[in-house]
């Protein structure tokens, strides 16, 4: 099955980003395809490469970049939501790109299931 994913919450305040990540890993392990993860609302903060969690904690931003690199997943940050929150090209972690909400709607059309992770 082909999945599209929507992440609506920031990387640490809320569990949504963690749950989305583990869902994607489990889906890939079972041979499903994840074609895009779209980051919206405070979810755009998942793309901030300036994030420096403590050494003994998971690195949420780095984890997304690794997922994109290893599985070729398209990580898209909503431009309108990103600009409001100061997320710009110069602070994007590897594997992320900034684009419009049309990418989310397109994901809903192209994927067999669009799964929303949020509050």
């Amino acid at each position: 099955m082909k999945f599209g994913i929507l992440v609506n919450e920031g990387p640490f305040q809320h569990q949504a980003a963690d749950t989305a990540y583990h869902f994607i890993k489990a889906a890939l392990d079972r041979g499903h395809e994840v074609h895009r993860v779209f980051f919206y609302h405070d979810g755009v903060n998942n793309a901030n490469k300036l994030s420096e969690p403590q050494q003994d904690d998971r690195n949420v931003v780095h984890r997304w970049s690794k997922l994109a690199e290893e599985h070729g997943i398209d990580l898209v940050v909503c431009v309108a939501a990103a600009l409001r929150r100061g997320i710009k090209d110069e602070i994007l972690a590897p594997g992320f790109r900034i684009s419009g909400l049309g990418q989310l709607v397109e994901s809903g059309i192209q994927a067999d299931r669009l799964v929303v992770f949020g509050d």
Partner: peptide
Amino acid sequence: SEVTGGVEVEEEIGGTVKKF
């Protein structure tokens, strides 16, 4: 394409209509 985030609606979704 500016409105749709670079997605060329006609070409890329090929007339698919889903219930949103």
